[in-house]
Amino acid sequence: MFDHDTIVGFSKSFGLLYLVAMSIGVVIYAFWPANKKQFERAAESVVSDDEDRPWL
């Protein structure tokens, strides 16, 4: 079907591309200014002293 060299060539090129693309995507998501507020709220909400009960 595919020989060894084809698969190796594919993994070496495509693997590099998608991992780099994904890393950039993650960094953009993490530093997107509009997300700042919800991240801060999420971090705060863990240590808040809310009543220990599900919200209904």
């Binding site: 993490a30 530093f31 991240f39 801060e40 999420a42 971090a43 705060e44 863990v46 240590v47």
Partner: peptide, 8 residues
């Protein structure tokens, strides 16, 4: 009692 240093 402190939020995680950097959520990002």
């Amino acid at each position: 009692g402190r939020p995680i240093y950097s959520y990002r």
